[in-house]
Lab assay of single mutants.
Amino acid sequence: MFYPNSPQTSPQLTQIPYGQQYAMMQRQIQQPYHPFATTEPQARLYPYHYQGPIQQEQGGFITQQSTAASPQYVQMRVTPVDQSIMSGYPNQTANGSSSSSFNYNIHPQQQQQQQQQQQQLRHHAMPVGSVPLQDDRYRKQLIVNYLAPDVTSTDLHELFSRFGELDGARIIYDKQTNMSKGYGFVYFCHAEDAKEAVERMSGYEFHGKWLKVGYSTNPLNIVPSNSSPYVHAGSRGAAG
Rank of each mutant, 00 (worst) to 15 (best):
F2I: 11
P4I: 02
N5Y: 04
P7M: 07
T9A: 10
P11S: 11
Q12S: 11
L13W: 08
L13C: 06
L13Y: 10
L13Q: 11
Q15M: 03
I16L: 10
G19R: 13
G19K: 15
Q21Y: 03
M24Q: 14
M24V: 15
Q26S: 13
R27V: 00
Q28K: 15
Q28M: 02
I29T: 12
Q31L: 04
P32K: 10
P32I: 06
H34A: 05
F36R: 15
A37I: 04
P41R: 14
A43I: 03
R44N: 06
R44Q: 05
Q51V: 04
Q51S: 11
G52D: 10
G52V: 06
P53T: 10
I54N: 12
I54G: 09
I54R: 15
I54V: 11
Q56E: 10
T63V: 04
Q65D: 05
S66A: 12
A68N: 05
A68L: 06
A69I: 08
A69H: 11
A69Y: 11
P71V: 03
P71Q: 13
Y73T: 15
V74R: 15
V74D: 09
V78W: 05
Q83V: 04
S84I: 05
I85E: 07
G88C: 08
Y89I: 05
P90D: 05
P90N: 11
T93N: 12
A94E: 05
N95T: 06
N95Q: 11
G96I: 09
S97F: 15
S98G: 09
S100H: 09
N103L: 06
Y104I: 08
N105Y: 04
I106W: 10
H107Q: 06
P108A: 10
Q110K: 13
Q112M: 09
Q113A: 09
Q114G: 06
Q114W: 13
Q117Y: 13
Q117V: 06
Q118S: 08
R122I: 08
H123M: 06
H123N: 04
A125E: 03
M126A: 10
V128Q: 06
V128E: 07
G129C: 10
P132K: 12
L133T: 08
L133S: 06
L133W: 12
L133G: 08
D136E: 09
R137S: 07
R139F: 15
Q141T: 00
L142I: 08
I143R: 01
V144T: 00
V144M: 00
Y146V: 01
L147M: 02
L147P: 01
L147S: 01
P149K: 10
D150S: 13
D150C: 13
V151H: 00
V151M: 05
L156Y: 00
H157S: 05
F160S: 01
R162M: 14
R162S: 12
E165I: 13
G168E: 02
A169C: 08
A169E: 04
Y173E: 09
T177V: 06
K181A: 02
G182V: 02
Y183R: 01
Y183T: 01
Y183W: 00
F185P: 01
V186L: 03
V186D: 00
Y187H: 01
Y187C: 00
A191L: 03
D193H: 03
D193C: 13
K195T: 12
E196D: 10
V198W: 15
V198S: 05
E199I: 15
R200Y: 03
R200K: 06
R200Q: 06
R200F: 14
M201S: 02
E205F: 15
H207V: 01
G208A: 08
K209L: 02
G214Q: 05
G214L: 02
Y215S: 01
Y215T: 01
T217R: 02
L220Q: 02
L220N: 02
N221T: 10
P224F: 09
S227W: 15
S228T: 06
A233M: 13
R236C: 10
R236V: 06
G237V: 12
